[in-house]
Amino acid sequence: MSRHHFHIDYLGHSVSATVRTGHHPVVEVLVDGKETGYATTRDDGAVTVPVELPTDPPRTVTVRATPGPGVPRCLLLATADGEPLVMAPRPY
C-alpha cells in the first residue's frame, strides 16, 4: 500500500486528498485541515467524495479520485457545467 497526496485552493479554502492504494483503496478528503469526506473502493475505479466548503451559504463540491491503474489522480468537481479542476500532487 502507498499514499498519494493532492491539493487545491478553491474559493479561499484548502482542499486536500490522500489516496491510499492497495487491495481496498481509501480516499480521505480534508477541507481547511479537517476531515470532511471518506470513501473506499474495491478496485482501481474512480470514487467520488462529496464535501462541503464552509462558505456562506455552504457549498458542496466533489472530489473524484482514481486510485489506478498507474499513478492515482484527483479532480475537484465544483459545478455541474464547469471543467474539472486538477488537484496537484504533493509530497507528504
Rank of each mutant, 00 (worst) to 15 (best):
S2L: 13
H5A: 13
H5Y: 14
H5D: 14
D9A: 15
D9R: 15
Y10D: 13
L11R: 15
G12M: 10
S14V: 00
V15I: 15
V15F: 04
S16G: 04
S16V: 00
S16M: 03
S16R: 12
R20C: 02
R20A: 08
T21Y: 01
H23M: 00
H24A: 00
H24F: 00
V26W: 00
V27R: 07
E28H: 06
E28Q: 11
V29C: 11
L30C: 04
D32C: 05
D32A: 04
D32H: 05
K34Y: 03
E35C: 04
E35W: 01
A39D: 10
A39I: 08
T40D: 05
R42P: 00
D43I: 01
D43M: 00
A46W: 03
V47P: 01
T48F: 01
V49S: 10
V49P: 06
P50S: 14
V51R: 05
E52Y: 01
L53E: 08
L53G: 10
P54G: 07
T55Y: 03
T55Q: 09
T55D: 11
T55V: 11
D56M: 10
P57K: 05
P58L: 02
T62I: 13
T62S: 09
T62L: 06
T62H: 06
V63W: 04
A65F: 03
A65D: 12
P69C: 04
G70L: 10
P72M: 05
R73M: 08
C74V: 12
L76F: 09
L77H: 12
L77T: 08
A78K: 05
D81R: 10
G82E: 07
L85R: 15
V86L: 13
M87K: 13
A88I: 07
R90P: 03
